[in-house]
Amino acid sequence: MLTSLWFYLGMATDRRASWLKGVLDLLVLGCLTDGESYGYEIARRLDGAGLGQIRGGTLYPVLNRLETAGLVAAEYRAAERGPGRRYYRLTPEGERQLAEQTAAWDEFHATTRAVLAGAPTTATKGTRE
């Protein structure tokens, strides 16, 4: 009964999810350029930017990977009330990776936009085989 609706719904959400999945680590790094932050604040910032709610089950594995890779450093601070928070900040390596990957994303985005607009394109470093 709802087959076509769910199909339509699934296509829209899957595509958006795939886009976000490919760039979420970069977005999280980008949220730390102004200084340290914590999980809820990062998720809220991404939501506020129009990217939708990022659940903890999605966000924390990304933060863990970034921390293990040395791109962010974390510090747990106990709070007077509540469970305390784990604060994240960019490391110098994280800053370098962010700059490099942001440039790569910009290049990819420009190429994609040009193709979608039907304009002639020249192959770029990120898209040439």
């Binding site: 699934g10 829209a12 959400t13 899957d14 595509r15 958006r16 999810a17 795939s18 976000l20 999945k21 979420l24 939501d47 129009g50 990217l51 939708g52 709610q53 990022i54 659940r55 089950g57 999605t58």
Partner: peptide, 11 residues
Amino acid sequence: GGPGVVPTDGG
């Protein structure tokens, strides 16, 4: 396909 709860595990 607008912002909502994004299933970044691919749904």
